[in-house]
Write a protein that binds this DNA or RNA. Structure first.
Lengths: 339, 339
DNA sequence: TTGAAAGCGCTAACAG
DNA sequence: CTGTTAGCGCTTTCAA
């Protein structure tokens, strides 16, 4: 790949199409770009020539003059952490991909790990190679979002970034983590449970903090002993559940910060011979269907539409002139067997 | 985004750098592209000007003349199937990303589902927007690889494509699925197990077929009853394990096609009160560490270096003139508690 | 070793 | 409504 592909040689140009159709380059350009105001007869001829020749516009040439790139960067920081534990990003990517594809915009994927990469990504984004960026800021202390803000590229964040409200210059898309958590805990309470515990997510992520806040909204008086720190993984859920059981053997309900940690909790509960939901009711978060439906009993959980969040991120980024506001999607409690 | 970003306006051009350094555009271009044969004094001046102005080359302009794009497409077909069940792709993506990044090449992600997308991807790839493609062909009957072959773009496949040997015009990178499977089964046999079962992967994927073949290589006389079809998921593993136990209650070892299905099998084994490895020894495949180390007991499994496979795919694609051969990476048995 | 000049393929005024 | 024209920013001969 040090040389231009010889195979795909001699791609036809606008010029060629113009000649074939017997019109000027400008006219072809108009037709190709869907400009109105070309006589239908001519337009038809042009389209015919395009088909015959298999003409595909040269993006580089187009970019050069329009100063657009029809490309959006998706930045995922520190993939090791969660990307691989959790179908979350994959689903969001799918939503993004669908939206971009439908508008014929390229998805340029940027995976980063560590400080060097931050700089590189900053340079890349300021380099003006893409029209915008969709950024997943995983950790509260991640410097990347700041760097990106500085890059001067239109940006939409996935998940609420961890900076003080009002500081933000870029919108974000998130689900109503706090409201969803409240719904989960209220459901547990409505079941008559009085000793409700919470297994948190990784507390360096806003989603985990927000869900914890939601828990406290409903149970402000809950003893700290009923809150165990997890990390969104099944293993973390197991650990937290063990702690909980040791500290508060009387616990009769658990709200886990996501389905994965709930599945871990469920495992420990079984291991200790406790019945779910009779002895301990469990609610998760995410409605990661392949997880939530496979546990025993199937998991009652808070659904968020992850793919839609991705789609929305792209839509907002691309909607200059439309609403540039952050969006918080609603959640919905899904009842299955565990609570 | 209907308009060029006004924020990141007025990027400096080669022209500007040239003026600043008091040389011609050509000289700046040479320095920027690492051409030898520029007097060091001048080169230094140019580099200085580049830094001062924060010059970043305009890729579109460069592409237009070089006919290269410094971009590679990564095509993942039908993500719903596995991408989301399994950290597999994420790891491979990471390897690819690292390699591309180190060479300053863009990763353009193409996610497809269904026939319409196939055409679109075909058009995109023939469109000459990227210098090459890395393609994951999941299913034996996937038409996409064929379409891509036709697109005339240099391609490397991830995983052995499902067409007859010799048909392939593009190299692939895979791990030694068959050899790894043999090692796993031999290990079980060496433990004195005489009734070894196999939980397959999704048999419309070559990796699953190859692992099954490896199993049969070692145990050609094994009764079909000892082979249960899974699908690489924990749920599939559970189902298969149940079948196995019902059909052959005397089974004393299981080789599962991957760690995820092994974890499902383990669950069923516990549920039925069987001890692992005393009553039934279990071996997985992949060494998906977060899975394999969290099961109880921890999983003995066949390790493959997934990230390296990704890196290698990129390296092969980019190594025109180097070895254009397919590569099959070795695997390694990792002993933990389950066998 | 360096510079001048000629485009790469396309869009966007501006005329007609 | 259509064509003419002038570049977008860069690399690359070709001369000097």
């Amino acid at each position: 790949m040090t040389e231009p592909p010889t195979s795909a040689a001699a791609r036809p140009t606008l010029e060629a199409v113009a000649a074939r159709a017997g019109v000027s380059r400008a006219t072809v350009s108009r037709v190709v770009n869907g400009d109105t105001g070309v006589r239908e007869a001519l337009a038809e001829k042009v389209r015919h020539a395009v088909d015959e020749l298999g003409y595909v516009p040269n993006r580089a040439a187009r970019s050069l003059v329009t100063r657009r790139h029809d490309a959006v960067a998706v930045v995922i920081a520190e993939p090791e952490t969660r990307v691989f534990a959790d179908p979350f990003f994959a689903l969001q990517l799918r939503g993004i991909s669908k939206e971009l594809t439908s508008r014929d915009i390229q998805l340029v994927l940027l995976l980063t790990e560590g400080r060097d990469d931050h700089e590189r990504v900053g340079r890349y984004l300021s380099g003006g190679h893409v029209d915008g960026a969709l950024v997943f800021s995983l950790h509260l202390d991640d410097p990347l979002p700041g760097i990106i803000q500085g890059a001067g590229v239109p940006t939409v964040f996935g998940g609420r970034p961890g900076w003080p409200d009002g500081t933000a210059t870029s919108p974000y898309v998130d689900c109503d983590n706090r409201g969803g958590a409240r719904a989960a805990v209220r459901h547990l309470v409505s079941l008559g449970r009085t000793r409700v515990a919470h297994i948190t997510g990784a507390l360096d992520q806003t989603s985990a903090v927000d869900r914890l806040d939601g828990f406290r909204d409903v149970l402000p008086e809950a003893d700290d002993a009923y809150v165990a720190e997890g990390d969104f993984t099944p293993a973390g859920g197991e650990r937290a559940m063990r702690e909980l059981l040791d500290r508060c053997p009387d616990v009769d309900a658990v709200f886990a910060a996501n389905d994965l940690s709930a599945s871990g909790a469920l495992r420990v509960l079984h291991e200790r011979g406790m019945r779910v939901p009779e002895d301990v009711a469990v609610v998760g978060f995410d409605d990661m269907v392949p997880v939530a439906e496979q546990t025993s009993p199937p998991l009652t959980t808070v659904r968020q539409d992850i793919e839609e969040m991705g789609r929305l991120m792209a839509r907002i980024l691309l909607s200059r002139g439309g609403p540039e506001e952050s969006v918080v999607l609603p959640t919905e409690l899904v009842r299955r067997g565990s609570a």
